[in-house]
């Protein structure tokens, strides 16, 4: 990896730092739970999420995991979130999901499609290995086409390198 440019080295360092920061504050769902959503353990203004609901999943479990630049392997933080997702999906056995893979915007179109497919697959495989039947989980690769955070800087790009588990049926 001698050819990797300094910018990405910096980005990787930033990302590791963010992951570590998140590790030290495990109960803060802002990284793994609430990016782009309401956030907060017990919901915000709308009161407590009903168990088994989409809101319960996104707020109390965390619907997304994040990746290091160019990587699709699951960080300890991501594995933690996905374990909780698997438990929740086993508890609510009628729920079906689609795992969306995404990349940040700092790559080329075709490569990012393939990279985001790897990420969706990694998350889906983890759920299957942890007891969720594969037929309940579809996946889709979005490449860099649907960023969640918009600021043209690593603090947003790190939020866009993600796999999001979206409930497609069986829950309100």
């Amino acid at each position: 990896m001698m050819s990797r440019m300094a910018g990405f080295k910096f980005a990787t360092v930033c990302c590791c730092f963010l992951a570590l920061a998140a590790c030290s504050k495990k109960n803060t769902p802002s990284l793994d739970g609430g990016a782009g959503g309401a956030g907060g353990l017990n919901g915000g203004a709308g009161g407590v999420a009903q168990p088994g609901s989409k809101r319960d999943f996104s707020e109390n479990v965390g619907d997304r995991v994040f990746f290091i630049v160019d990587q699709s392997n699951l960080t300890p933080e991501a594995q933690d979130t996905l374990s909780k997702q698997a438990q929740w999906l086993q508890q609510y056995g009628n729920v079906t999901v689609q795992v969306e893979g995404h990349s940040d915007e700092r790559g080329t179109r075709e490569y990012n499609i393939a990279l985001s497919a790897r990420r969706a697959t990694a998350a889906r495989n983890f759920l299957i290995e942890h007891g969720v039947p594969g037929k309940r989980i579809s996946s889709i690769a979005y490449g860099k086409e649907r960023p969640a955070s918009l600021c043209d800087a690593e603090e947003c790009w790190s939020q866009n390198r993600r796999a999001v588990t979206v409930i497609t049926g069986g829950a309100n």
Binding site: E110, A120, T121, S139
Partner: peptide
């Protein structure tokens, strides 16, 4: 074109 592999890891 590219096709994704069955294990989802490669194209």
């Amino acid at each position: 074109m590219s096709l994704q592999s069955d294990d989802g890891q490669n194209a």
